[in-house]
């Protein structure tokens, strides 16, 4: 039913085509964030949407469609009219869903048109503050000897912290006891409270706790050290191959007029050079991507390579969401 309506729409819109794009946008644009309001992805979306509203001359409204690990919101945009008024802002989960969910009702590569990358939030490996190891080397040795007695928290199936944990266990060939939580907040609570040993989570959630000495930081997963955490070494420095960033991208339903995509791309690039956006991103421990990366080509490349990467990691771990 929905499909037929969508198809009917594509037909009508194809007729009006380019003439339509010149005046675009003529009404508010909805950006679907497939997570509940208040989370890091939602924050990124709201910051960018606010600036894009000014540039496009129309309100860009963030709509939270949470549920099913982000696949519900993404699925909704996949079948939305491709008129440029319904967009999707999703993170790394876009590339893990095809492997995690064996009956995904959409294909991230063919059901969406890419607009551009937005940012890649680095992650940090942290532990409760009275945890024995003090350096990353010691930590890895500790995990090797204690194995399943080490508890690793993550924020739920498909969350960035779960992915980082899988990657960590894969690259160190160890197995820890993973303890899932409902979101990053409760997981951090138990790390701070010393109920659980460690977590690898986005800087968004960990930076203030590291700075306040509430948790012990071992490494950041970015290629270089971070400006607001200068004392925390990168994983690479300590000889651990653990590079992972929670990248965010902006998408439209497949078949959206290229002229509209171009307009949105320009607007996105403008937003990413906005001072407020840069300043707020910095407080989240991240930075906007360059103009070359905020393009459809760069996002498509990222998405394609990440789908491959995570298929390998997830299949090796044998963890699925359904």
């Amino acid at each position: 039913m929905k499909k037929t309506i969508a198809t009917a729409f594509i037909a009508t819109l194809a007729l009006s085509g380019t003439a339509f794009a010149q005046t675009y946008p003529t009404k508010p644009i909805t950006v679907v964030v497939p997570f509940t309001a208040g989370g890091p992805t939602d924050t990124v979306a709201r910051l960018v949407a606010e600036v894009m509203s000014g540039d496009l001359g129309q309100q860009v409204v963030v709509q939270n469609v949470g549920g099913a690990g982000g696949t519900l919101g993404a699925g909704q945009v996949a079948t939305a009219p491709n008129d440029g008024y319904t967009l999707l802002l999703h993170h790394i989960g876009m590339s893990t869903a095809p492997t995690l969910y064996r009956s995904l009702p959409y294909d991230p590569l063919t059901d969406f048109a890419t607009i551009g990358l937005i940012t890649s939030v680095p992650m940090t490996l942290v532990a409760r503050k009275d945890f024995e190891p003090t350096t990353l080397e010691e930590l890895l040795a500790y995990i090797k000897t204690n194995g399943e007695n080490v508890t690793y928290a993550h924020a739920g199936i498909g969350s960035a912290s779960q992915l980082c944990g899988m990657l960590l266990m894969e690259s160190t060939e160890t197995i820890m006891t993973t303890v899932p939580y409902q979101g990053a907040g409760p997981a951090m609570t138990d790390i701070i409270g010393g109920q659980i040993d460690m977590i690898c989570d986005q800087t968004t959630n960990t930076t203030t706790q590291i700075q306040a000495g509430e948790v012990k930081a071992y490494a950041v997963t970015s290629p270089e050290r971070l400006a607001n955490l200068p004392d925390v070494p990168t994983a690479k420095e300590s000889g651990l191959d653990l590079e992972i960033g929670v990248w965010h991208g902006l998408y439209a339903p497949a078949g959206t007029d290229p002229a509209i995509i171009e307009r949105l791309e320009t607007s996105l690039q403008a937003a990413l050079t906005n001072e407020t956006v840069i300043a707020r991103f910095a407080e989240l421990g991240t930075a906007p991507v360059t103009a070359e990366e905020a393009t459809p080509a760069a996002l498509t490349e990222m998405l394609t390579s990440q789908i491959e990467l995570w298929r390998g990691v997830i299949e090796a771990a044998g963890v699925y969401a359904e």
Partner: peptide
């Protein structure tokens, strides 16, 4: 409250 819903829908 600025609810995102069309006044008159696509049908």
């Amino acid at each position: 409250l600025g609810m995102t819903v069309p006044w008159f829908g696509p049908w």
